[in-house]
């Protein structure tokens, strides 16, 4: 088996890797956005809940949360399928980080602009939707890219719950051909290629939608 063939076998798992990453990141964005929006509600119980949420999901190791969800929940009668376990785990954890990123980005938005929108007769919801959100997303881009990278790098854990992604392919291939060095080198290369490709897409998107005077740094 040549190195090229090894790459090909492993690449069959890349689809799952990308799927897990995309689904987890989407879940994370939704959760993060919801948490960031809730954080604007100045009601004590909500604030406490959000503090607890970020503390727990930023503090718990990915693997521990994954095991709680996949192996733990069934013992109290809740069975979560592998893919959902992975997405839930990474979604909650990246959601907690993204909530902080979004909150910081919201603080960079000039409140006078929101006031101007309201002075023209816009509702608070309109001001949020048309002024706050578009600017907030632009300020969040570097943070979102970091978080995406982080999610991608945690996807190999999916093998522990039996999702046939790259790592799982590598683990079943290694004992067959007894060439772990090459196999894991190939895994590294595939991940790096995925990472670089995604990064290129993001940078291109960011350039395309860049607005003078509105970037995170």
């Amino acid at each position: 088996m040549t190195f090229w063939q090894i790459l090909q076998v492993l690449a069959t798992g890349a689809g799952f890797t990308i799927l897990v990453t995309a689904a987890s990141m989407s879940a994370g964005l939704l959760i993060g956005l919801a948490a960031a929006m809730l954080s604007r509600i100045r009601w004590k119980p909500v604030q406490h809940l959000l503090v607890a949420f970020t503390f727990v999901f930023r503090g718990i190791p990915v693997l521990v949360l994954l095991f709680i969800v996949f192996f733990g929940l069934p013992s109290i009668g809740i069975r979560v399928p592998p893919f959902l376990s992975m997405v839930l785990t990474l979604g909650l954890i990246s959601g907690a980080y993204l909530a902080e990123i979004f909150r910081g980005a919201m603080n960079s938005v000039n409140l006078d602009e929101i006031l101007a929108a309201e002075a023209m007769g816009m509702t608070r919801a309109q001001g949020f939707l048309y002024i706050m959100l578009p600017q907030m997303f632009r300020f969040s881009i570097p943070g979102m890219i970091n978080e995406f990278t982080s999610v991608l790098k945690y996807t190999p854990f999916a093998y522990t719950v039996g999702i046939p992604e790259i790592m799982k392919q590598a683990m079943s291939l290694t004992p067959m051909i007894m060439r772990g060095l090459e196999v894991y080198l190939a895994v590294g290369i595939i991940y790096f290629v995925i990472y670089k490709l995604c990064l290129m897409c993001f940078t291109a998107l960011e350039k395309r939608y860049r607005i003078p005077g509105l970037s995170a740094d």
């Binding site: 000039n110 006078d112 602009e113 006031l115 101007a116 929108a117 309201e118 002075a119 023209m120 007769g121 048309y130 002024i131 578009p134 600017q135 632009r138 607005i211 005077g213 509105l214």
Partner: peptide, 18 residues
């Protein structure tokens, strides 16, 4: 409705930067 019939110009412009 009231605010729609009153135009407001701010000292610091408050243009939407995006």
């Amino acid at each position: 409705k009231l605010r729609q019939s009153i135009g407001f110009v701010f000292q610091n412009f408050a243009l939407y930067r995006h």
